[in-house]
Structure formats: C-alpha cells, structure tokens
C-alpha cells in the first residue's frame, strides 16, 4: 500500500514530533511554573519571547534558529566544538524546529492547568511536612495532569504538522528530515505526484485522528482519577 520512502516519512514524522513533544513538554512545565508561581523583573518580557513562535511566520522561526544554532551561531558553534553536535540538516534539528514552533501551545495549556491548582491544597501539603519539590510532584503536577496531557496532544499535533520552521532549519532531506508535510510538498513538486501526496495526506489524517482519540481516552482516565 505504502512505498518504503512513504513509510520512512511516517516513521520520521512520529520520531521528530515525539522528540519535540517530549523535550518541549519538560521545558513547558519549567517555564509555566516560573510564569505561574513566581514574580521576577522581566517576567512579562519572558512571557512574550516564549510566545513569539506563535505569532512569527514559521520561516522566521527557522531562520532565527539558523542564526542561533547554525554552525556560525553562538550556541551552534559551541555545540559543534564541545560535543561535535550539528543541528541544521539533521533529524535532531528538525525536532528542535518543530518543538520550538509547538512550544507556545504546550506552555499555554500547562500554565493554565498549573494556575488552576488550588493553592490551599499546596498549603495543606506544606503543613503535613512536604517541601517544595515534594509538593510539586505529589500535589501540583498530578492535579495538573489533564493540562499536561492536553498540552502534549496539541504540541504533538503542531510538531507533526510543522513545515516552515523545519524546512528552513533542517531542509528537506528524505530519510533524515523529510517529515510527512515535507514529503507531501516534495511529492507535489514532481509530475504525477498527486497520488503520493494523497496517500501521505491520508496517513497524516489517520495519525491526527488516532492521537486525538488517544488523548480523549487519557483525559477521561485522568479526570476520573482526580475527581472532576
């Protein structure tokens, strides 16, 4: 049914979106906590910077990533010199671009759910002898879990569909950075590619639908657990 290179695009897409979601969610929890629970100068500025990928054209996001993580960029040069790691034109780079683009959506969902946790429950945990990390892992994060799931789902969907940032930063290399949307674009560039484009689109649709159903299931389980 599918050709090997189409399977490869699907595998890459899931891998890249998975990595983007995994790392993005951890970062989202850290920054959401910072924004929801602490007050410091420059907080509003940080909030704006973190949300920038949402309002910038994806190509600009990819270009900024090239400036920062490219071989001549400050972090890119350091990564190359210290660890021998190069991000542009690699699947890790594609995951970075997809993750950065999807990050604001994850941040938003996670932050709302952390802000919704009743501070009085944390106070109760405190009087029972729980320190800050203890409270975070036993009270706040479990109660914010539905928001984390929701954040992971929108993040995964956004990362899966990201085109502009990925193609700008990581290019369109079959087997390395060619995710489903990039493969669809490539298919449309060749004569008689419509059949391949249609098949790839159908896979994208199936993956999206599957993810949505899975998240709905997870949410239901979570809600029952925390009693809402």
């Amino acid at each position: 049914m599918l050709r090997p290179e189409e399977w490869e695009a699907l595998r890459l897409s899931l891998l890249i979106a998975g990595q983007a979601t995994g790392f993005g969610l951890v970062a989202a929890v850290l920054f959401a906590w910072l924004l929801a629970r602490t007050r410091f100068p420059g907080r509003v500025l940080l909030d704006a910077v973190l949300h920038a990928p949402l309002i910038l054209p994806p190509v600009v996001v990819g270009f900024v990533l090239l400036l920062v993580f490219g071989t001549q960029g400050p972090i890119g040069r350091w990564l190359d010199a210290t660890w021998g790691v190069q991000l542009p034109f690699t699947s890790a780079g594609a995951a970075l671009a997809a993750g950065v683009s999807a990050f604001p959506l994850m941040l938003r969902a996670v932050r709302l759910s952390i802000e919704a946790v009743d501070l009085r429950l944390e106070e109760a945990a405190r009087s029972l002898g729980a320190g800050p990390w203890d409270r975070a892992f036993t009270v706040v994060l479990p109660l914010a879990a539905p928001g984390l799931v929701a954040g992971a789902v929108v993040g995964f969907a956004a990362a899966l569909g990201e085109f502009g940032a990925v193609i700008t930063f990581a290019a369109n290399i079959p087997g390395e950075t060619q995710t489903l949307p990039l493969a669809i674009y490539a298919a449309l560039q060749v004569p008689d590619g419509e059949g391949a484009a249609a098949r790839l689109s159908a896979i994208s649709f199936a993956v999206a639908l599957g993810g949505l159903l899975l998240s709905e299931l997870l949410l239901r389980v979570q809600r029952r657990r925390i009693g809402r």
Binding site: D118, R120, L121, E123, A124, A125, R126, S127, L128, G129, A130, G131, V139, P142, L143, R225, I226, G227, R228
Partner: peptide
C-alpha cells in the same frame, strides 16, 4: 511551615482529590 510539626484543619477539609 513544613518543618513546624503543626497540624492544620480548616472548615473546607482540603483533602487531596486525586
């Protein structure tokens, strides 16, 4: 507060719902 060894009960029980 977490090291005081003081138990607190409020009018809303504040039980952990999860």
């Amino acid at each position: 507060p977490e090291r005081r060894r003081i138990g607190v009960v409020h009018q809303d029980a504040r039980l952990f719902p999860h």
